[in-house]
Amino acid sequence: MFLINCPYCGERDQQEFKAGGEAHIERPKQPTELSDDEWAEYLFMRKNIKGIQFERWNHAHGCRKWFNMVRDTSNDEIKAIYKMGEKPPSQ
């Protein structure tokens, strides 16, 4: 059980949160212009890294805000948390 520092509410238990997969995958602005392969890249392809991973989290049983997290998946250490739209910390 992680202790997650929600950028809006502060430290809360993991059970209040929902994980939302890889972060910084922007929905294409003009989907109709994309080839099948390009659309599939957006739709299906996700990284599964052992190590530093950027991911989306939602404070589902709290403020319901989405935010980003940098997590080391090898030891579950949370390296950084930042709001949606903010720049990710440099690696």
């Binding site: 929905r27 989306r56 319901r64 989405w66």
Partner: peptide, 13 residues
Amino acid sequence: LGKLEDYLQTEWP
């Protein structure tokens, strides 16, 4: 609701 909030907060703020 969760899905709609997700789009509003992350894709179409």
